[in-house]
């Protein structure tokens, strides 16, 4: 079992984090849009935001861990890409980290602006660091905007991956899925 990322492909932690977080982030987007439209008498009116905040805090932790893991590991060989493609891939890959960080922090700031802690699944609670009533307004606007931007970047990223997999037949999906690319 490959643990570390090498020039040949991604190791298990990177792969699990990539696909686990991808599913969770897409799920969070749908959950976010759905929950703000619930009516007051919906049984999910309180539950859905509780789950959204809880998963958000877990994702924030995972993102930080993933970032550290990324910088202490090699990146798989991308020499099959043109210079432009390589630059684009790097911008998109590294772009995810600050974008997701800002998305999750804006959510945290919105929920904690009044000094309340965030209860994560009745498991532990994350206290408010900055109590600043009124901050929830810009934080909320930023949160919605950043969520849309994230999804936009995911679409670009996924289309690029699919293009390289099926058009260029570079086996890039395999590298993130099973750890090694099929045609090398």
């Amino acid at each position: 079992m490959m643990i570390r990322d090498t020039s040949a492909g991604y190791g298990v932690p990177t792969r699990v984090l990539h696909w686990g977080m991808a599913v969770a982030i897409l799920g969070m987007y749908v959950l976010g849009l759905w929950m703000v439209d619930l009516n007051y008498y919906s049984p999910y009116y309180q539950l859905a935001p509780d789950i959204h905040r809880s998963i958000g805090m877990v994702l924030l932790t995972l993102l930080l861990g993933r970032f550290l893991w990324r910088i202490v590991n090699d990146k798989p060989d991308d020499s099959e890409l043109s210079t432009m493609e390589r630059t684009a891939a790097r911008v998109v890959h590294w772009g995810f980290y600050p974008l997701l960080l800002a998305l999750m922090i804006s959510g945290y700031l919105m929920s904690t602006a009044d000094g309340r802690a965030i209860e994560v699944f009745d498991w532990f609670s994350v206290p408010a660091i900055i109590e600043n009533k009124g901050m929830e307004k810009p934080a909320g606007a930023a949160h919605a905007l950043l969520a849309h931007l994230t999804i936009l970047l995911v679409i670009v990223h996924a289309l690029a991956a699919l293009k390289h997999q099926f058009y260029d037949r570079s086996g890039v999906l395999g590298r993130m899925w099973s750890g090694s690319s099929s045609n090398r």
Partner: peptide, 17 residues
Amino acid sequence: PSSINTNHAERDNHLRG
């Protein structure tokens, strides 16, 4: 009206919306 304050940030955002 955006200065509405019910001592709950998320609710206040909902009320502004």
